[in-house]
């Protein structure tokens, strides 16, 4: 269990983060979401032991990282946005070196190397010099160095930035595999990625945690009882407009003709009273062929939460 209590950090007179509090359970993948300058990097650097916080504590299984000193850093693996790599080394040499740097003896490193290279999907390039590798493979080298010592917490700062779509899919699998052995904290500004990969989301704005929970929990908090629906209907233009104008709770809508008398509607409701919407459409002679809730609302949720915090 990772517990962060009252974490505050100042750069000189400027406060970067204030009273950050959260807990992460074992094997959980938690996403860290925030606009530029929200304090994400500072928080991650404090968690990784690179910065000593001005106030507050970070404990891993009850051990306080600040008071435990340098040795406590062995329980954390950290991958910054730009992977730190000794490019003149081969992948295998580099990961082995990092293992020893993290305090493992050479025999233990050797016994773990193949497994770690497999998790990071680096086995087939393990004897290649890092300088020759693509950005995606370099990211994976960064992940391998972060997990070779079996840390309890792995911190990944923007792990998918700069990757192509195929590499993103592979990286998602790497991250999910990591969570089998440790807790993973991911920072990303790509909302869809956080939504795709993480069990829980922490939203940071103005140096403070403004919300935390699953995507559904955040949606409930940010959007109240509203809903965004997509419908495929059959009917006349006038009938559709009449039904949507008279239906209770319709905030706004737009429609696009699909051909053969079919229309695609995007409807925003102030309250999730979709039964009333259906009744109004049916009464107006509009046939409903399909109705689905818009899946990815994270962007709206995020904007709502961060704008609310900065207002």
């Amino acid at each position: 269990m990772i517990t962060v209590e009252g974490l505050t950090h100042y750069y000189g007179e400027r406060r970067a983060i204030e009273d950050i509090r959260f807990q992460i359970s074992e094997h959980e993948i938690v996403g860290f979401l925030g606009l530029n300058g929200a304090g994400k990097s500072t928080t991650l650097r404090v968690l990784a032991g690179l910065l000593v916080p001005s106030a507050g504590s970070v404990t891993i299984d009850g051990v306080d990282l600040v008071s435990a000193g340098a040795t406590s850093r062995a329980s954390i693996g950290y991958l910054p946005e730009d992977p730190p790599l000794y490019r003149e080394m081969t992948v295998r040499e580099f990961v082995a070196y990092c293992g020893e740097l993290k305090g493992l003896d050479a025999r233990t490193v050797e016994s773990r190397l193949d497994g770690v290279l497999k998790i990071a999907q680096l086995t087939h390039v393990q004897h290649r010099v890092i300088q020759e590798l693509s950005h995606g493979y370099r990211k994976r080298c960064g992940i391998a160095q972060a997990i070779i010592h079996k840390p309890k917490l792995v911190i990944l700062d923007e792990p998918i930035s700069g990757l192509d779509p195929r590499q993103i899919v592979e990286m998602r699998q790497v991250i999910r595999d990591l969570a089998k052995d440790c807790t993973v904290l991911i920072s990303s500004h790509i909302l869809g990625e956080i939504s795709e990969t993480c069990d829980r989301i922490l939203v940071l704005a103005g140096g403070k945690i403004v919300a935390q929970g699953t995507e559904a929990e955040l949606a409930a908090r940010a959007g109240g009882d509203g809903a965004r629906l997509t419908l495929i209907v059959r009917g006349t233009e006038a009938g559709i407009d009449a039904a949507l104008t008279s239906a209770p709770g319709v905030l706004r809508y737009d429609r696009h003709e699909e051909g053969a008398g079919l229309w695609r509607l995007h409807v925003s409701l102030t309250t999730d009273d979709r039964e009333a919407l259906v009744t109004a459409l049916v009464k107006a002679g509009v046939g409903i062929r399909k109705m689905v809730e818009d899946e990815s609302e994270l962007e709206q949720i995020f904007l709502g939460l961060t704008q609310g915090a900065s207002a």
Binding site: L50, A70, T71, R73, Y78, P80, D82, P84, Y86, L101
Partner: peptide, 14 residues
Amino acid sequence: QTGTIVLLDSSPLS
């Protein structure tokens, strides 16, 4: 300059 200082800073070495 190359960012590899992070490897040393985040290691358990004093």
